[in-house]
Computed example of a mutant assay.
Amino acid sequence: MSDDIGPMIRTARERRGWSQEFLAAKVGATQSTIDRIESGLTRRSRVLPEIVSALDIDLPGHEKRQTPTQVVGGFARVTYVLPKELIERIEQYKFAIGISSDDEAVRRIIDDFLKKRDEIVDVINRIINKYKLIKSMREAAGTVLANHPLVTTISFDKGGVVFDFDDSLYGKLDIEITSWGLVSIKKPDGSNFFFHKSDAPRWLSSDNIVEEYGSTDYIPF
């Protein structure tokens, strides 16, 4: 390993604002290993390809190692380096909900966070797409809506589903999806929630469509 590689790694690391400990955790090494590489005391190391890839730098004679994402049974294995205080909060979360798996805890936290960013069109699309696959509105809606943080009530009637969705702008919307895939949306005051005709989803009831822009009820998703 040439004499300038160590300083090059140090410069790249510091440019990213990473500590030696952080880089070490990311590549599966110890802080002392990183320090010895950067100081030029270690000229060969098994983790050098990982360091090169993590820092996204080009070193003569060393190719960046691409680690393929492992997908097993619909789950992808990914690795993140998290600060200690975040790990402690995850441990508190595990204890609070009574689970022991780190993977399950992180999955639930991320899933809950992303669901809170959902818009109603996205949720309805997921239900309808699921329904097309399994041909059961009850099962499709249950899969998508169960434990959704923005869904407050769910009921089933004649093959369809009715549920409330807590929209950040309009408040609690009332949504009905029929078994043939037609959807109506009402606002908290019982009035129709409108889309412009050119932007309306194909599954939307005609009662929720306006011809011209300018309606105070219209919202462009």
Rank of each mutant, 00 (worst) to 15 (best):
T178M: 03
Y131Q: 14
D166S: 13
K197I: 13
I154Q: 11
S168W: 08
L150A: 04
I177A: 11
I154F: 01
I185H: 00
K172I: 07
I175A: 08
D189G: 05
K130L: 04
K132M: 11
S179K: 15
T143F: 02
G159E: 13
R138L: 08
A141Q: 10
W203F: 12
R202D: 15
W203L: 09
G171R: 09
E139H: 08
L145E: 06
I134V: 13
V162C: 07
L133W: 01
F193R: 13
G171K: 04
T143C: 04
S179F: 02
V144T: 08
W180M: 06
L145I: 03
D189W: 03
W203Q: 11
D207M: 15
F163K: 04
I185G: 00
S136Q: 11
E211S: 14
W203G: 02
T178V: 00
L145W: 02
D157L: 11
K132N: 14
L169W: 06
E176C: 10
T153H: 12
G190K: 13
R126K: 13
D174A: 11
F156Y: 15
M137C: 08
H196E: 12
A146W: 03
P201T: 12
E139A: 14
S179Y: 08
A200N: 10
S155D: 14
V151L: 07
G171I: 06
G160Y: 02
G190E: 08
S198Y: 01
K187N: 04
I124G: 05
L150M: 06
I185A: 01
D157P: 00
S191P: 00
I154G: 01
L169T: 10
W180E: 11
V210K: 13
D122T: 15
R202V: 07
N192A: 07
D174V: 06
R138P: 00
D174G: 11
I134R: 07
K172W: 04
K187Y: 02
S155L: 10
S179H: 14
P201R: 14
H148L: 04
I127A: 08
I185W: 01
N129E: 14
D164F: 04
D164N: 15
D207F: 13
K187L: 14
K172Q: 13
T153I: 04
H148G: 10
E176H: 12
V151F: 04
Y170S: 09
L150G: 01
S184G: 06
V162A: 09
G181N: 06
F193E: 06
L182F: 08
K158W: 02
G181I: 06
